[in-house]
Each structure stands twice: as structure tokens, then as C-alpha cells.
Design a protein around this nucleic acid. Structure first.
Length: 573
DNA sequence: GCCGTTTTCGGCCCGACTGTTTTCAGTCG
């Protein structure tokens, strides 16, 4: 089976961990991490590039050595270099890197003085008070390690973007009303709209010495203060979410906002561009040889110094956005306003919580031109899926309601189960009556890549099939993506006039950003839908739009940016 | 281990905070 890019990235990251523990040249370690990061964001399969004899060395961060390693992984599924390193470092030691406060130096001290090889041994030694005697350690470090160990699971957890949205807004409101505060903004992965965030980064600038830090650490939801300084403080909220706050002078706000928005890889690339121009770039601004600040008040100034257009935070992942900006070819990212309707939702007739009428009314209030009603099919018992007859009756109800509605059109649809053999869980004579047919995998998630891919393509062979809903079937942090050859599926969809959905449910966000980009590059249209199970959830569209933006999608890449007539035409295969 | 408008060798982003030191190393972002 073809090796995935994610597997290759995982191998490179593991090698970087092992090299780091061994006190290897830190730049060599970084080379592996850079390569892993690049591979993760690549919208083409490396295994396939190897198979077609393409030169991997043309990829950024990949030189002769790493190209050979990728070829070895593609051919054998593993890497001798990794196996060899694994014999030199005990596997438990790598886990210790996950303990906040423990880096490679302290790890080696632990191993060399106390022969500590894993988390259990570390905890035992800390309880016995052995760590405080080690060079560079003390009583406080020992206590910190013990506390981190007890909170390890919670602290390493990432949160869904949507889970932290409310507290992020509360923090902004709280900080903005403090006296002397000029400006407060979110930065970090939250601003870049990553599907999950590890912490919140907040920037504040004040007009005078306002006691913002004191106010911040006494915010109601704060459970513990990790650090508190004059320019930076870190707290942990009761939910386990870490929040960093930075104070920056207004003259540096743009530089700081850019810097703390990241991504890290994007920042490093920008700093390297600065170095090439003889400039120093940091969170306080851009400085020339005489250490004179020549930019920093706005992000636009920062990019302009590098000869670049300002770019949306969602693009800043070091996936070609700097090159695109240099050429003036940045995408004009889609916005929620570009969408004219929603093509996936449920009502009380299957497993939704609101009636047909309520859903229609809510969609109309959102300004939608159309809303597709797409109940489950009968194979999905837990969701009270509809039989052929019930769906036909439901169609009658939709037709009747459409007669009464003004300003919005309900589309008759279905979210039909793709059965294990690739057939659809609804007879063709029923599908024929519908405006739109979504197909989805809700069972047999564990098939081999070959079988799963064939299953989906066979489903798309049915000429009534329009949209592959939540294509990978993943649930973030709950269920991994099905093994699918996504490139093959996209090519098949394109050939058959089908689309792929970007499902906006916060735990799905499926397609992911890399897959959106992959679709765009092929000219395959994407549908951004909510899969709403209540009227409130129709608002989830904003999460899907954010993910689409991370995947560089523009208005024309998205099918439901079209008016009703054009949409209906496109649904005729 | 990568990379090149100063380079095929010698660089590789940079600052804040903590804790352990008594001027700085380690870690983090």
C-alpha cells in the first residue's frame, strides 16, 4: 500500500526527536522538522511522485539526503536510519520530551545521572526528591515536573477552534474595557483559524502603564498563573486552555501581531528574507543596519519591507504563500458572504432537532437563497434513516412547503449511505425525484485503502450521485480518517461531474485544508455545507469557510457560491 | 541536513521568562 505523506512526516519528526536527545547538531534536527512540516502541507502524494520518477530535490527543505530517505520509505515503508536510531535511545525517553519544561539537555541529565528512561521512572525519582540534586535542577524544577506529570494529559490536549471561540471573545471583551487599553487582538493558531488550537495568544497595547497584567491573571476563568512579567504572562484556564498575553508598544503592534500570529515556519521564512536584505526582523519591528526601526506599526508595513502584499492569516503556513505574494498572485479568499445557500442539513424527520419549517425560516433569515434538506437513508438506523417511501413522502412535504415559501427554495435531497460494496442505500427511482444526492460513508470505516477507494468511486459511478459528504469520515480527536486515495477519488469525481463536500461541523471539517488545496489545483469544485442538525447549526458555515480559506479556496472554487439556477444546472451530471 | 544576488563552506530567527545561578542556561513560543 502506498505510504502517505503523514507517515513520512511522522518518521522525520521521530528522527528529529531522537537526534535531539542525542545532542545532535540542532540545525540538522531542524532540517528534519522543516521537512516534516513541508511534507504535511504538500498537496501531492510523495509516494506517487517517487513512483513517477519526479525529482524530490526540487521541493523546498528537501536535499539529496532527504530525497533518498523519502525514496527508501516509499519503497520499503520504513527507514533504516530510524531503526538504527531507535536502538540507541529507549522509546520511553522520547515521551519525556512531551513534559513541558523538559528539553533535550535536561533529558540527558536525567538519563546520565539517574538512568531515567521513561515517565514512570521520572515520576518515581521526582517523588523521592532525587531531581533537586542534579545540576541545573532545583526544588522548584522538581515540583514543576511533578505537577506537569499529573496534568500531562490535559496540558497536551488541543481544543477544537469552535470550543474556544466563546472564551476567546469573552477575553477580548474583558481586556478591551480595561482602562488605558488601546488595542487587543487575538493572534496564534486561533487567528489562523486552524481546526484545533493548543492555546490562545493575545496582544495588548496600552496608552500608559495600565495594570493589564494584574487584570489578566485575575480574569474569572483563570485557574493558575504560569508566569507573569511586564511584557508577557501565561495562565491556564479551568478548562485546561493555556492563554498567553503580550504587551507591545503601538509602534510595534503590526510586527508583534505578525510575529505572534505565525505560523512559526512562516515567521522563520520571513526573517530569513529579512536577513537576506540586511534587516533584522523581530516582534518589535524591522530594523536596518543602524538598528533604526523602519517598519512595525502595521502588518502591511512588515510585508512591504519584504516586497510582499499583506496576506490573510489563514494562508500563513509556509505553503507557498510567500512566493505567491511576491508574484502578486495571492488568492482572493472566499468569505461567508459569497455563499448563497447550504446543501446539507437534517430535520426531525431523521435525526435533526428542528422541523422543516424551522430550518427553512432560519436559513432564510441567514440570507440563503436555497437550503437542501438531506435526511439520512435507512441503513443508518441510529439516525432514524428514511426508507424509500418515507423519503418520497418527505419530498411531497418539501414541495408543499416550497409553495408557501418566498425568498428561499428548499431542495429535495438525501444523505444516502454508501454501502460497503459501493452501492447506494436508496433505489434509483427515488434518487430521480431529488434535486441533490449526497453520498457518505457511515460504516465499514476500516477497509483497506484499495477497497475503500473503490467503494467510493463505485458510488460516484451512479449518475444520480452529486456530492461526496464528509469525504474522509474523520472525527477530530475521535476517529481517524478512512484510508482513501484522495487523489484518485478527486480525479474520479472530476471525470464524473461530482463534487466533494467540506463539512463545517467543528469536529469534522472534512475536507481538511490540504485536501481543499488539492481539489482547487485539479479544478474540482467543493461544496461548503453545515450538516446542520438544528437551526442554530446553520451558523456553522463560518467554520467551514475558515477551513476553505486555509485551503486557498476562492469564490469560484465553491459550488454553493452560485445562484440557484446555475447550481441546479451544475447538479445535472 | 539544507542552501546560495555575499557564499559549494559556513552559516542557519530571536526574544522573554524561570530557575538556578551569581551572570546565564534551558526552554518555550
Amino acid at each position: 500500500m502506498a505510504v502517505t505523506n503523514a507517515e513520512i512526516a511522522a518518521i522525520f519528526n521521530r528522527i528529529a526527536d531522537l537526534l535531539e536527545i542525542q545532542d545532535e547538531n540542532p540545525f540538522r534536527v531542524r532540517a528534519y522538522r522543516n521537512a516534516a512540516h513541508m511534507v504535511q502541507g504538500l498537496s501531492r502524494s510523495l509516494a506517487e511522485m517517487v513512483e513517477q520518477g519526479e525529482t524530490l530535490e526540487a521541493l523546498p527543505t528537501i536535499g539529496k539526503d532527504l530525497a533518498a530517505k523519502i525514496r527508501e520509505i516509499a519503497a520499503t515503508g520504513s527507514l533504516r536510519k530510524l531503526k538504527q536510531l531507535q536502538t540507541m535511545v529507549s522509546p520511553g525517553l522520547v515521551d519525556l520530551l512531551k513534559v513541558p519544561g523538559l528539553g533535550p539537555r535536561r533529558l540527558r541529565t536525567l538519563r546520565d545521572y539517574l538512568n531515567i528512561q521513561n515517565i514512570e521512572e521520572l515520576e518515581k525519582a521526582a517523588r523521592q526528591g532525587l531531581l533537586r540534586q542534579l545540576p541545573g535542577f532545583g526544588v522548584k524544577t522538581e515540583q514543576n515536573i511533578l505537577r506537569e506529570l499529573s496534568e500531562l494529559q490535559q496540558r497536551t490536549r488541543r481544543f477544537l477552534w469552535a470550543e474556544v471561540e466563546e472564551i476567546a471573545e469573552q477575553l477580548l471583551t474583558y481586556l478591551r474595557q480595561l482602562p488605558g487599553v488601546k488595542r487587543v487582538e487575538m493572534a496564534g493558531s486561533y487567528r489562523r483559524r486552524r481546526e484545533t488550537v493548543g492555546d490562545l495568544d493575545i496582544l495588548v497595547s496600552t496608552s500608559r502603564n495600565a495594570p493589564v497584567m494584574d487584570a489578566f491573571v485575575s480574569f474569572a476563568s483563570v485557574e493558575r498563573v504560569i508566569s507573569k512579567g511586564t511584557t508577557r504572562s501565561t495562565v491556564v484556564l479551568r478548562t485546561g486552555l493555556q492563554v498567553d498575553l503580550r504587551m507591545v508598544p503601538q509602534v510595534s503592534f503590526g510586527a508583534a501581531w505578525h510575529y505572534f500570529t505565525g505560523s512559526k515556519a512562516h515567521n522563520i521564512a520571513v526573517r530569513v528574507m529579512g536577513v537576506q536584505r540586511g534587516l533584522k526582523v523581530n516582534e518589535y519591528g524591522i530594523f536596518d543596519k543602524q538598528d533604526k526601526r523602519i517598519a512595525g506599526r502595521t502588518e502591511k508595513e512588515i510585508y512591504a519591507q519584504m516586497g510582499l502584499q499583506w496576506m490573510e492569516p489563514e494562508l500563513r503556513e509556509q505553503r507557498g504563500e510567500l512566493e505567491a505574494a511576491a508574484q502578486g498572485r495571492l488568492p482572493k479568499l472566499i468569505t461567508e458572504n459569497d455563499l448563497r445557500g447550504d446543501l446539507h442539513c437534517h430535520t426531525t424527520t431523521s435525526d435533526g432537532q428542528d422541523s422543516l419549517e424551522a430550518m427553512a425560516k432560519a436559513a432564510q433569515q441567514m440570507g440563503h437563497d436555497y437550503l437542501a434538506i438531506t435526511e439520512h437513508s435507512q441503513h443508518l438506523r441510529v439516525a432514524r434513516g428514511l426508507s424509500a417511501d418515507t423519503l418520497l413522502a418527505h419530498c411531497d412535504a418539501i414541495d408543499a412547503l416550497n409553495e408557501k415559501l418566498k425568498g428561499i427554495r428548499l431542495l429535495k435531497g438525501v444523505e444516502v449511505d454508501i454501502l460497503e460494496d459501493g452501492s447506494l442505500d436508496m433505489p434509483d427511482y427515488v434518487l430521480q425525484r431529488l434535486d441533490i444526492c449526497l453520498g457518505a460513508i457511515h460504516s465499514a470505516f476500516g477497509l483497506s485503502e484499495q477497497k475503500q477507494t473503490a467503494r467510493v468511486i463505485r458510488a460516484m459511478d451512479n449518475p444520480r450521485f452529486n456530492v461526496l459528504a464528509h469525504p474522509s469520515a474523520r472525527l477530530i480527536d475521535k476517529r481517524s480518517a478512512c484510508r482513501l486515495d484522495m487523489e484518485q477519488i478527486m480525479d474520479a469525481a472530476l471525470a464524473r461531474g461530482c463534487c466533494l463536500e467540506l463539512n463545517s461541523q467543528p469536529r469534522r471539517l472534512d475536507l481538511n485544508d490540504v485536501h481543499c488545496r488539492m481539489a482547487k489545483e485539479r479544478g474540482l469544485k467543493v461544496v461548503i455545507s453545515t450538516d446542520a442538525h438544528s437551526a442554530d447549526q446553520l451558523g456553522y458555515l463560518r467554520y467551514g469557510v475558515a477551513q476553505a480559506r486555509r485551503g486557498w479556496l476562492e469564490k469560484d472554487d465553491v459550488l454553493n457560491s452560485r445562484r440557484l439556477a446555475a447550481l441546479l444546472k451544475a447538479l445535472q451530471r
